[in-house]
């Protein structure tokens, strides 16, 4: 049966015409495209424009410079207190890593980012103390 043009004035008849499957495919493609476009827009908005605001975070999510400063504070306190156990407890806030590893990472960061020599020396002192302390505990 040859294709029949579908006049606008006869929509009901048109639904039964042989052209109907071709129209549906075209529409389906448009609908799918709109759906995908919506997903993309939603992802872009949710990830980049207005991402989730986090709160009640744990310290392991802190930015590296804040972590390093926390370790530096611990090192400053250690320099006076000379209590590696107390320093280790303070560093335990960062989770599963060993205190000496945490201190070492901070030392590496401090060296790489131009911290003053005095701060680096304090961090180095803490690293040494915690390494010795870890050895004693093992």
């Amino acid at each position: 049966m040859p294709p029949v043009a579908c006049p606008d004035v006869l929509p009901l008849r048109c639904q039964q015409s042989p052209l109907r499957p071709k129209m549906k495919a075209s529409n389906l493609f448009l609908i799918l495209f709109a759906f995908l476009l919506g997903i993309s827009a939603g992802l872009a908005y949710g990830w980049f424009i207005d991402p989730v605001d986090f709160y009640d975070l744990t310290p392991d999510t802190l930015r590296a410079d804040y972590k390093t400063d926390y370790v530096l504070m611990t090192a400053e306190a250690y320099r006076v207190e000379q209590d590696p156990g107390s320093a280790a407890r303070r560093l335990a806030i960062f989770g599963v890593q060993s205190p000496s590893t945490i201190a070492t990472e901070a030392l590496v960061y401090a060296r790489a980012n131009g911290f003053p020599e005095s701060d680096i020396a304090i961090l180095q002192e803490l690293v040494t103390a915690l390494q010795a302390w870890s050895g004693i505990r093992q």
Binding site: A34, F35, L36, L37, G38, I39, S40, A41, G42, L43, A44, Y45, G46, W47, P51, V52, F54, L57, T61, L62, R63, A64
Partner: peptide
């Protein structure tokens, strides 16, 4: 689609949390 995208971005897989 926007709803699905937002749900995924806000609930299922928010952007990885570092540098807080």
């Amino acid at each position: 689609g926007t709803g699905v995208g937002l749900s995924y971005a806000w609930v299922v897989s928010p952007r990885s949390l570092t540098d807080s």
